[in-house]
Design a protein around this nucleic acid. Structure first.
Lengths: 120, 120
DNA sequence: TCAAAATATGCGAATGAGTTGCATATGCAG
DNA sequence: CTGCATATGCAACTCATTCGCATATTTTGA
């Protein structure tokens, strides 16, 4: 556990949004001003492999991260604002598992993103 | 309509899988041996913007494409083999729309991929 | 507590998918 | 056929992410 890693973890804890590596680098600099981007990338890869962090691709080139502790949820992206809304639906979870089973698979992972615009 | 574009369209028609730009480039070379990668990228971007092609990211860095005419479906990726299986589930479609609505949004697009291993 | 071994860091260079500038080639309208 | 608009090939460029390597920081264990 190094200064750099502590800085990244703190930056992550303080983030309510879904930051990308650049944002995390900026935020981590507050706790360790000399931290390098490469370290952020390396640490995020590590955290992802350890299952402590989830990596998402919301479609604009940069990977975005969130802590993995929370209960299972998916994302809805507001196309008007870019805002990301988390949601959970039990029926949906069950249905995903059931569909995989029907096709002859055990579901190991999944990815669901809804893209929508606010209803006027 | 140029030689290069015809070559790419034929390569696409002949593809039952979900090829990436490199694969399409290789396959298109059969019809136009001098075609450049840049042309494949440019053409795929065009086709995607026109809505004739769908672009997917199944998670290994290269975008993958399929013709867009078919009816709506999602993908299950076999983690053991990389094989991609298409499926359609009406309940799932309805549920996605309903969830978006519940959150106050009109669903414009979505992305669902299931990752699984064959049940032994 | 301290030195050696192990691991992580910062830096800049490298990678790899996708894009772009530009001079040339091709397609199409008249 | 000619002229002009558009597309192509090539090589150079982006941009996110990764890597090599020399140095710095942590950890181990005597």
């Amino acid at each position: 556990m190094t200064t750099a890693r502590r800085a990244i973890l703190r930056a992550l804890e303080n983030s309510e949004d879904h930051p990308d590596a650049l944002m995390l680098h900026d935020r981590a600099k507050e706790f360790d001003p000399t931290i390098a981007q490469a370290t952020v990338y390396r640490t995020m890869r590590l955290l992802e492999q350890e299952g402590l962090v989830e990596k998402h691709d919301f479609g604009n080139g940069r990977a975005r991260y969130e802590e993995a502790e929370k209960e299972q949820h998916d994302h809805l992206i507001n196309l008007s604002t870019g805002e990301i809304i988390e949601f959970h639906d039990t029926n949906l979870e069950a249905l995903k598992i059931e569909i995989a089973k029907r096709l002859g698979f055990d579901l190991k992972d999944h990815r669901l993103e809804l893209y929508g615009v606010p209803r006027e």
